[in-house]
Write a protein that binds this DNA or RNA. Sequence first.
RNA 1: GCGCCUGUAGCUCAGUAGGAUAGAGCAACGGCCUUCUAAGCCGUGUGUCGGGGGUUCGAAUCUCUCCAGGCGCACCA
Length: 559
Amino acid sequence: MDYKKYIADRIEIDGVSADEIYSSLAFPPNTETGDYALPCFKFAKALRKSPVMIAQELKDRYKTDGVISEVSAVNGYLNFKVNKTALAAEVLGAVLSSGERYGASDAGNGKTVCIDYSSVNIAKPFHIGHLSTTVLGSALYKLFKYLGYNVVGINHLGDYGTQFGKLICAYKHWGDRQEVEKGGIHAINDLYVRFNNEADEAMESEAREYFRLIESGDKEANEIFEWFKKLTLDYVRGIYDKLGVNFDSYAGERFYSDKMQPVIDELRDKNLLKESEGAQIVDLEEYGMPPCLILRSDGATLYATRDLAAAYYRKKTYDFHKCLYVVAYQQNLHFRQIFKVLELMGNEWAKDLVHVSYGMVSLEDGAMSTRKGKVVWLEDVINKCIEKAHCIIEEKNPQLENKKEIAEKVGVGAVIFGALYNNKIKDIVFSYDKVLSFEGETSVYVQYTCARANSVLSKSGEFSGVPEGYSPNPQEFEVIKQLAAFPETLAESADKYEPSYIARYAVDLAQKFNKFYIDCKILTAEGDAKAFRLNLTKATLLTLKNALSLLGIGVPEKM
RNA sequence: GCGCCUGUAGCUCAGUAGGAUAGAGCAACGGCCUUCUAAGCCGUGUGUCGGGGGUUCGAAUCUCUCCAGGCGCACCA
């Protein structure tokens, strides 16, 4: 139920619309003061009365009922308290009847959202910097599905560029088939690093030739390339499986090789293409941006050219409602440029393209550098977190069954959660101390709360439904209010492309539940209190699991 | 130089289309397990909300300006 609307409909102020009252409604600092508040200051001038007086008069006129049980006027605020008994029954009913679908909606029915995320580069292992796009994109993927959208997850492979010529050149000089087969993507990456450190001019030119050979369809060059691609995809699928990440398309840059010409032709037809310093550009000076390069002076296409072709292809293929690009803020300008070019080409859907931009990761001693060996590999981080979880289990709960499975859920959860807990725009300085901290505002805390709830429920046996007319105490009510807020949290999270809202929600709910859990005995309570508390526990557990699962985090029964 | 982003407690960060005494976690210190999992709970302390102007009854939030840091700015992706 929309309480704000309910309240707004029952208040009349001369010369003030119901909409304005609705949007003026705010939240008091604490539950003792009230659940909703109307600040009356802004009405003072029009009514020529003091806010205190206005609040008092509105209070005198307002009729309380089964929904709003109490109204008070304090210092120019009109405070409302909802009927806690009714709200509690309504919320628990909603959560328990929806179960794993609580908070889900059909808002997205019939609409498709494309999400371009994670986007592996062939031959480059994931380092910690790839975590954000992967888990952000994955969380948005799950969230939009939950809200009823048709979602297309796209891994826009980085499989085009002169570096692949270098790679093949390095392999031909120094590589060994069996070693590469055994060492997988890291072995390939080592070859690439070696090339960058050791290649002379002769090798550089050889590399350009290999790149040309790939492009012209040379059999051997393409076989090697395809082999590297396979090793790369085998590697990343291992990581995606651990992180619970899915894709519907692996159409990468090469996929657009033959789809760029029509875009270039259209640009030319529409007189948007202009020669400058030998290159073909779209001039964006009018919009305060540097030109967007479409063709190099040697006629080769560029990153932007492929992105334009990809946008057209996605629109044609999926007819998206939104197309998201989950890419770090480094590329803010690039996306502003291609979105603008698509708009100038007359595509009204250019407004549906969204760059979901996020902050950068660095190490405590500065930026990462693969060449200098200053790099933290993602799989190492995941493995260390799982190991740490395993150690803690051995220490605290050694008789647990499925220790391995639990350690994995806990460890992987910590990695994902750590990357999603803060606003995505914030830069991250990676530190093992931080990801390996399993206390406080972490997924482990939330999972632990679930384990507690599970434990209580497993000991309770069968219990009846939500008792009617039960009036919740303050601790219980705080949990109820938090449960009630889940659907709107999801809506806001989707609206802002901000999974951190869900992560924070989960911690808030867990905190409120733990306070309740400590203060109110569940199993030894009697009658309605016991039934209510068991239902509250069940509803909390369901909602915490829903929240974490939207982030790609599993919840063990015990831990 | 120009553009975008960030600046809140010792550290990491919240702060809901301006609203009541600015909140969490970590770290520190002190409590709480013969009763539902102590990966937990309770308590203690800390703030020129980067500085300064402006708008407003009211500004961490809007605006201007300055400062600091990050990122980007033509043939890489």
